[in-house]
Write a protein that binds this DNA or RNA. Structure first.
Lengths: 237, 237
DNA sequence: TCAAAAGTGTTCGTAGTACACCCATGT
DNA sequence: ACATGGGTGTACTACGAACACTTTTGA
């Protein structure tokens, strides 16, 4: 067996004729039916000359990071500011795209509810997706899981919520993203203890059918922070 | 602005002349100094004609997944069976490798303590690393963090521990991987409650200087399982 | 004054930490 | 028997879930 070389040999026999694409699952909590609660939606574009939907994405340019590339490609769709973007996973099955060997580096992107620009692409409720191209459905599923998981131990919801909000609204956002009801009361306690949200001191307008006007809150940070690092096995003292 | 195309356009202007490499941070808990506790080590290879160390890795072949590639490249080093391998992250800074644009898809690999084959590469304690090539140190750091995090909410330690072990030994493994002491008593309780480890019914030999012979345990699964899914915001009922 | 929505407080269960104490073995 | 390590039991604490009750508004 020849000496197993580390990676630094820059030009060995197997030159990479692979294509690297960037795909982003962009989520936003949106009011689809005004009569019912808002739902988690994902941004989809229609592939050219095809009736299938696919995730927004494209190729990397030589001078940019994959993340920069993802931002650029989503920004081109004119759907507002991405408040949070993170790597999801790489999908590399040899036959995932029939034409040519294509490796997809995927991202999870989040857009706050108060960003309302709707550009080229359209929003689809994640629980009612159309046929998706290639393995894109699988990518959306992975992104949902990642989002749900991080909601419980990070402040990631800052990227879904508007700048200021009553707790009931935040509760609806959590509910939409998690897929099950969330107790508003306890949510406030948990997020307060962790200093994830803080009161602004202002109050909002009372709703359509009366009721006490809600206190408005805001997220303490606008960058991802792990708020519950050690579920167990904490370091001593 | 031209129509923002989704990814499926297989041959547009920006063809990818990027190289895709796979790099794996392989960890094993090893006894370096027989007089003291075992430590977490990472597998490093010496780059050809260089005095720098680098992570094992290489190029993808057209017919394999990135993960398959990672397994193949590590297997070539003859250091035993990888009990767990997972995606870590993609490193894509344009200048991370000076020569040519190289995107690194990185993996975290774990090898149990009872695998003792030492092939071409050598083990280095993670707290005492030599100079590493390119951004490889950063990759090792990311891998350590991932391992430490997953130790607290998954059964990932199955891939570090031998087939059967006394709890004191498992405790040392956790300690080495986490970097701080772990109470053996409580570790057993936690892992038992979560059904991560189970008693084998057998007992081991007593140590060098007397003492009660320890009960031997084993991991219930040999695949990654999330054991503490909802730290908080559990679904109702 | 009544309904609706927001906010407060209380109880309960459970999981994890710390630590004292008991058990089994070799010398 | 005694030192050495392994194992069991027992507070104590903290966090989160569930839910009742109070407060503030509009109609």
């Amino acid at each position: 067996m020849p000496t197993p070389l580390p990676s630094s040999s820059s030009t060995d026999g197997v030159s990479s004729d692979v294509r690297v694409e960037v795909l982003t699952a962009v989520f936003q909590v949106r009011v689809v039916d005004p009569a019912s609660a808002p739902v988690l939606c994902v941004l989809l574009a229609r592939a050219e000359a095809s009736d299938e939907w696919s995730l927004p994405g494209g190729d990397v340019t030589p001078d940019e990071t994959l993340e920069t590339s993802a931002r650029r490609l989503v920004a081109a769709l004119d759907i507002g500011t991405i408040a949070h973007l993170e790597q999801l996973a790489v999908f590399s099955a040899p036959d995932r795209v029939p034409d040519a060997r294509t490796i997809a580096s995927t991202y999870l992107g989040l857009i706050p509810t108060d960003e309302s620009a709707t550009g080229t692409a359209t929003w689809h409720p994640v629980d009612d997706l159309p046929e998706l191209a290639f393995d894109h459905r699988q990518i959306v599923v992975a992104a949902r899981h990642r989002l749900a998981a991080k909601l419980s131990y990070t402040n990631i919801a800052f990227a879904l919520a508007p700048a200021r909000f009553p707790m009931s609204e935040l509760s609806e956002i959590y509910c939409a993203a998690l897929g099950y009801p969330v107790d508003t009361t306890n949510l406030l306690r948990i997020l307060s203890r962790r200093a994830v949200v803080v009161a602004t001191g202002t109050v909002g307008k009372t709703g359509r059918s009366g009721g006490r006007p809600p206190a408005l809150y805001q997220f303490a940070d606008s960058r991802l922070r792990v708020t519950d690092e050690f579920a167990t096995l904490r370091p001593p003292m």
